[in-house]
Amino acid sequence: MIALIFRRFAGLIVTLLLVSAIIFAVMDLLPGDPASVILGTSASPDTLAALQKEMGLDRPLVVRYVAWLGGVLQGDLGRSYTYGVPVAGLIAERLAVTVPLALMAVVLSIALAIPLGVQAARHQNGAWDVFSGLFSHVSIAVPAFWVGLLLIILFSTTLGWLPAGGFPGWDAGAAESFKALFLPAVALALPQAGVLMRVTRSAVLEVMNEDFVRTARAKGLSEQTALWRHAVPNALIPVVTMLGLQFTFLIAGAVLVENVFNLPGLGRLAYQALSQRDVVVMQDVVLFFSGLVILMNFLVDLAYLVIDPRLRAGVR
């Protein structure tokens, strides 16, 4: 077990190193270096050369990569050109919005998807099944940022129940902050829920025919107990896998939804960095998000071990 986790962890480190190296190399290959992107086309060659030297761009790629990596390991992600502050601080500040938002969205989507999916599997081809099938078809097809706009029209401009955007900050109180994050989280959760529901349904359907569920029924457990105690936990693996796979889309959705609701999160930071041509910030945010996706996949791998005792037993 420990050896397996250790091996997975080593794989994680290698992947993270590779992803940073690739993004670094790609940025180097693209026409225009960060200094000229920041200064624009009107800059004089002297100014450009000075900034290039200041940013260390006159050094070879490998040297810059190693220096950058060394910095990252010490928590130094470089300085934002427009804000004039360390990028690490900027990211940490924005995470206080993006992480709760993503977590709320995941929790909401699970809370919606698992009961719906299980009910659909239990009453296969019944009204529930048809309804949830329709729900999943629709929710997979709608863009999260559009759902956000619809929620604003309904709950903010029409009913006036919830704020249309902005974030008061956690200092203003948890209740106010959660209120500001609620609509964005719902917008993010709905498309996720459709996918998760579909996976839950087919996984439960498959497990329901397994011998151990039949045994559970045969020994006199009620249908509900057999379902929730024996079938559902065994159906969770594909659901967790899907959650992991969907993480990339959750992040992409968060970038958009944060911009719809004007939330000062990482996605908004990336967007602002793009319009201000703050390449250092952009590079760091992209690396950070990619690292997060890879880390998520790693956690999903670990979660298998927790969920499924058979995998633990099979470890050599």
Binding site: V19, V26, M27, L30, G32, V37, A252, A270, V279, V293
Partner: peptide
Amino acid sequence: MRICDIIFAVPPILSAMLLGAFI
């Protein structure tokens, strides 16, 4: 396949932003 995993880890929105800044 490892390289594919890595490319898959960068959402297209973000790679478009990176590309957008440069080209």
